[in-house]
Design a protein around this nucleic acid. Structure first.
Lengths: 212, 212
DNA sequence: GTTAAAAATTGACTGCGGTCAACTTTTCGC
DNA sequence: GCGAAAAGTTGACCGCAGTCAATTTTTAAC
């Protein structure tokens, strides 16, 4: 890395650190870009050559943290445990990270789940890193007979991810407390695995899973 | 309704109509509160005695529209059709409504799924109206043997709602096009009903197979 | 009809997010 | 080492969301 690039990385880091410190102290809304710049020892305009908007600072921070988490999960995950447990471990780790700071998490999730058109590109990239983490787990579970072989890995991922979003929603709306999250998640994941239909039901509507 | 209250309703309506018109024409960000006020024939400050923030105007609009939709669905829904079809009808109606205007829908969903602490109260109220719509359907389906009797109605609702959010996410990120939404939704709902486990599986996730 | 309290309206004002033309620093070919 | 082009930095400036003290309108008691 050239000298110039190294300095840029340092400045970026300085902005992030100053911003996170101030956001944590005074809250996101009450912290101005000018304060962040001052605190990082640079001019206000410079902040905007590193981050396009104020929200992007949060995004930069959260994405970095999540990448760390993912990298760690890849090492620590044990593919021999049941799929339910693996998913709970992965998404509980993610949940704890995202909700470590209530405000950051909210802003991050808002953008991540319903991104601006301008941010869709960056968003897909993050999602794809997810799939790299989850697909092998799903494939292994399929081989073990824990998941239906004919289901799309993407759809299975989607299913768990959607329940994860719901749990976060329930937490933000106060429907479940922090301590209940793990149980709630396990219940929903279990429900997804088992299905909502009675097992012995023969009332199968004639809708075979459609291909996409 | 007193004369005063009637006038307030009219003003509120005028603000909403002016705002929606302008938002549609020029986009949300590019429309200023002052413009809205001018267009509604009132002063800028008055807007703030009807809506606490700019975003709240969108919320007011979307909530109203969704209430209309719900009222209609209650009349039109046919509890004799399979639960899958009923859910697809309900959530496709909702989907069409929410995404009628890309920008409104995004702002609304962001607040609805990850609300500010200040907005949680209003949010729960909206959610509860949902349950009033869905619970009877679920109860009927249970009686018909289409859903496991031992599952919490709330959890079942949650499950479908979470997949609905996911579909919207997929649409906003361009993962699925508008025409594919209905199929995608049906696939995911079907998957939720059937479960991710193989049917004949006797593997209870509590004591999984030790393999490697 | 008078009047005083309550409710509603208003626009000048504040503070901040984001822009950009001017300016400073770094790079690199000679 | 020199000069000019490229890259990076800066803070004055703009437009707008949201506030609030002053003002107008409505209500209702007498």
């Amino acid at each position: 890395m050239s000298r110039r690039e190294k300095r840029k990385q340092q400045t970026r880091q300085a902005i992030l650190e100053a911003a996170i410190e101030l956001f944590s102290q005074k809250g996101y809304e009450k912290t101005s870009i000018d304060e962040i710049a001052r605190s990082a020892g640079i001019g206000k305009g410079t902040v905007y050559s590193y981050f396009t908007t104020k929200k992007a600072i949060i995004r930069g921070f959260c994405e970095y943290e999540l990448e760390q988490i993912h990298a760690e999960l890849v090492h620590r995950s044990n593919q021999d445990t049941p799929i339910l447990e693996q998913m709970v471990v992965i998404y509980m780790t993610e949940f704890r990270q995202v909700t470590r700071n209530r405000e950051f998490g909210r802003l991050f999730m808002r953008e991540a789940v319903f991104p601006d058109d301008a941010e869709v590109a960056g968003n897909l990239e993050v999602d794809n890193k997810y799939f790299q983490l989850l697909f092998p787990i799903i494939e292994t579970a399929k081989k073990r007979g824990e998941l239906r072989a004919e289901l799309e890995p993407l759809h299975i991922c989607a299913h768990f991810y959607s329940l994860f979003i719901l749990i976060i929603h329930a937490w933000y709306t106060g429907r479940i407390a922090g301590e209940e999250v793990e149980n709630g998640m396990r219940t929903l994941f279990q429900q997804a695995l088992t299905g909502l239909l009675p097992r012995e039901s023969s009332l199968q509507p004639d809708h075979p899973p459609k291909q996409s």
